[in-house]
């Protein structure tokens, strides 16, 4: 009984939580709506209003996600509680996610206040996009490995390449968000396909199976 086998057991336990594809739909929707923030702002909406769809996706999306999990997934997949205390991989994922969000928030605040103006005009804006590309790809790749879910490598590549592709397409600020839109849409569509496969492959458990 090696530590490696326990790690594999841990990864398999986490992998089953992503079998339904609901997380892909939620996250993909967020990125799709994030991508349309720029066109909305160009229509004359205030910047905070243009971010509202993306914010609402997570705000309303999370309760809907948990409701769908309880209604459709739990009766088929069962219940599992994976604590941070017993699962090192989950602690690392949460830590990375929080760190990435803090860095994003800092850069957003700096950009909003115009502090990054000189940095950008000196031609170094590509370093911010490169940082986000690497960080996003790294996060999704780590998630794909620790949760044994290979489609997250694809999301990492699609979302990770979006900032740099957007920079290459920067002839038009609206067009530069197309890669993020496409990546988000791919996640939503793959999530829907995964959910359909899940509903087909995991029938409802008999009551005696539920109660043991």
């Amino acid at each position: 009984m090696s530590t490696n086998q326990l790690t594999q057991a841990s990864r398999r336990s986490l992998a089953l939580t992503l079998k339904d594809g609901l997380w892909d739909i939620l996250l993909g929707s967020f990125f799709v709506l994030l991508a349309i923030q720029e066109p909305l702002e160009k229509q004359g909406l205030k910047i905070w209003v243009s971010y509202l769809p993306a914010i609402l996706t997570m705000g309303l999306g999370l309760p809907i996600y948990y409701m769908l999990k309880r209604k459709f997934v739990v009766p088929r997949m069962g219940l599992v509680k994976i604590s941070l205390r017993k699962n090192k991989a989950r602690r690392w994922l949460l830590g990375l996610a929080v760190a990435l969000q803090i860095v994003t928030l800092i850069i957003f605040i700096l950009a909003f206040r115009g502090t990054l103006g000189n940095f950008v005009s000196a031609g170094f804006s590509w370093t911010i996009d490169a940082f986000f590309s690497v960080a996003i790809f790294g996060f999704f790749a780590f998630m794909a490995y620790t949760m044994s879910t290979s489609r997250f490598y694809v999301y990492g590549i699609l979302l990770g390449s979006s900032p740099l592709l957007g920079l290459l397409l920067n002839t038009d600020e609206v067009v530069s968000h197309i890669p993020t839109f496409v990546a988000g849409l791919a996640m939503v569509l793959l999530g829907i396909a995964t959910f359909r496969a899940f509903m087909k492959n995991y029938p409802l458990a008999e009551q005696e199976e539920v109660n043991g």
Partner: peptide, 12 residues
């Protein structure tokens, strides 16, 4: 490796 699990999840 988990906190708790039910029979259905454990069969999977």
């Amino acid at each position: 490796v988990v906190e708790s699990v039910d029979y259905v999840y454990l069969t999977h």
